[in-house]
Amino acid sequence: MTEILKTLVEAAPPGRTRRIPQMGMTAKIALTILMVIVILTVIAPWIVPHDPLQMDPLARLKGPSLDHLLGTDNFGRDLLSRIMIGGRLSLMIGVATACVSVGLGLILGLVAGFFRRADAVIMRLMDALMAIPSILLAIALVALNGASVGSVIAAITLPEIPRVVRVVRAVILSAREEPYVEAAISLGSRTPLILFRHLLPNTLAPLIVQGTYILASAILAEAVLSFLGAGVSTETPTWGNIMAEGRMFFRIKPELILFPGLVLSLCILSVNLLGDAARDMLDPRLRKSAR
């Protein structure tokens, strides 16, 4: 097949031998949706039509109206305002989880991939961590440590770490076999230089992709934790606990779950689609075919 590729390269007009990755239509739409959601939640405190915590016993479980665009919940609170404000914490937890798990996973993965002795220990630990179903682990951690934002982030982060470690380790293990790394050794380069300047850059693209997927799954996990009653306390609205509170009234007013569920799903969907787009643009296998 390489012969065919070479023939194609020969036939290509000069200067076009390396394709510049283009963002597809789907990815552009996803990015737009995500931007709208992020901007709306960020500026929510200044633009919400109602105080999201303001109860109104006279306006309980009302349908959509001009005053309450998405209606009200069982305490008469405005659903739209709650969703907008609730997004802040949900997104914050997602971003924090992605950053912390990528950061810790990167360090552990580098150590495991480069130092053979540490490898066995770290990977057994990761195997054990992966064996515990992540939702159960997160539930237990929150149940034991109390339902603060910090403990929710920790609880969602911990099960994500092995995924990052595995990706980083695999990249390092395959990159260290590359002849350019052996060339660096014979040029007298010391371990830190090889580790940080030759090997580390290889992990960037997979980490961007993995980080995006973790962001999506963390937002999802927060919602699930709240739904099961093991999330952030219900005094602060998040997408998850708005839906959790709506559970009891599902037959009377399914919108209490469906509207936040829709926003949440759209948000996660956009992030996942961006992850796919990033993978397609950064995947070396795809780039090879254009080289």
């Binding site: 002849p179 350019y180 052996e182 014979s186 040029l187």
Partner: peptide
């Protein structure tokens, strides 16, 4: 080490 240098087979992979 510097007295002993090497050129590898695969020129596609021997340069970072």
């Amino acid at each position: 080490r510097r007295k002993l240098q090497v050129v590898f087979q695969d020129p596609m992979r021997s340069l970072n």
